[in-house]
Design a protein around this nucleic acid. Structure first.
Lengths: 187, 187
DNA sequence: CGCGCGATTGAGTAATTTCAAATCTAGTGG
DNA sequence: CCACTAGATTTGAAATTACTCAATCGCGCG
């Protein structure tokens, strides 16, 4: 099962089998059931999660009780509350499962230890974070520069997998209501 | 003048004077006049720029000719077209000066060389990028979760310095029209 | 069969945009 | 120091877009 993590790292920073075994020793397998929460608002966030299988989302619930979705995560993606994890402050996000999910979890302590002990992994995390930053900047551009219909079309073009998500959640990800989203598909 | 870069790095990864001299040798001083472009759409992006003094913005011009602002940069900030810089693909953004500006520029080649040669700087860039990712995620949350007036108030609370920017640009950063922004301040 | 949840549709309301015009302001040259 | 101009800001009115609230529809699952 952990082969998928190796392949994922290899794309940026190829490892020998021995090296990967060492890397893997810093992770722990964690499995969750549909609807289960990995992180709730206020929690101390122990882990960053690499998704081996399943489906999750991270979201924020605002003062009016509305949920806004920051991220979906499927196989090969990472998910957590990055701010709470990296700064070790209380979580402001929820992370929960839309399907039964298997993850490889790494604590901040082990992540930093791994970066110090093993150069290739510091390189991996640096590159991965850079790619994440670039993706986030694209999303900002889409949010400030495109109307909601364009954003929806861009989204399903970039991530066709997202078609299988409930539309209510797609809407919460795009920053529009489910009713507005529902009025698009017709065309 | 480069003392400000040292102080900036020291906040994350403290350096001795000798170490900093070594780091600095990887940068070149570049100065620009108000209205000058550092990067234009289609360019090969040579540098990431650390701002010593002055003021800049990065922006994208869409198919309708409208400008959307991704970032402002003042003293102590970094600016570039990250996607074009890190992937060495043609720029999709413009970066230009709102005031006369002094920068310390680093090529991707020198940045990577520096990371390999000098561990503390790889740590610095990794942490800096992580912080940038977290800030970007906050902005996404603000865009999908708050209406335009709330976003404006959040912005001037988080960055009071931005008050000195032309409102047209604040609007282009928030993803609203200048007319809409103009109708807020009254209250 | 019927429950429950997600998706859709309708009608009225609120927010935002567009287009146009008027007003203000900072910087320039005389 | 003043007049002038270009850019920025404000204001108005109509059109568009999105939201809210309420009702209905469709379907999978026990």
């Amino acid at each position: 099962m952990s082969i998928i993590l190796k392949q994922h790292i290899d794309e940026i920073s190829p490892l020998t089998d021995d090296e990967f075994a060492f890397v893997l020793s810093h992770f722990t397998v964690k499995k969750f059931k549909k609807h289960q929460y990995l992180i709730q608002e206020g929690d101390l966030v122990q882990n960053d999660y690499f998704v081996v299988s399943g489906l999750l989302k991270s979201s924020h619930t605002d003062a009016r009780g509305k949920e806004h979705i920051l991220q979906f995560a499927m196989e090969n993606w990472w998910i957590s509350d990055p701010q709470a994890y990296h700064n070790q402050t209380p979580a402001t996000l929820y992370v929960n499962c839309l399907e039964d999910t298997e993850t490889l979890a790494i604590t901040l302590h082990n992540r930093e230890k791994l970066c110090v002990e093993f150069r290739k992994m510091e390189y991996f995390f640096r590159k991965k974070t850079t790619a994440g930053y670039i993706a986030m900047q694209k999303r900002v551009l889409s949010l400030i520069g495109s109307d909601s219909k364009e954003r929806y079309l861009q989204l399903i073009e970039q991530y066709p997998q997202f078609r299988r998500l409930p539309k209510t959640m797609i809407a919460a990800y795009l920053g529009i209501t489910r009713e507005t989203l529902s009025r698009f598909e017709a065309s």
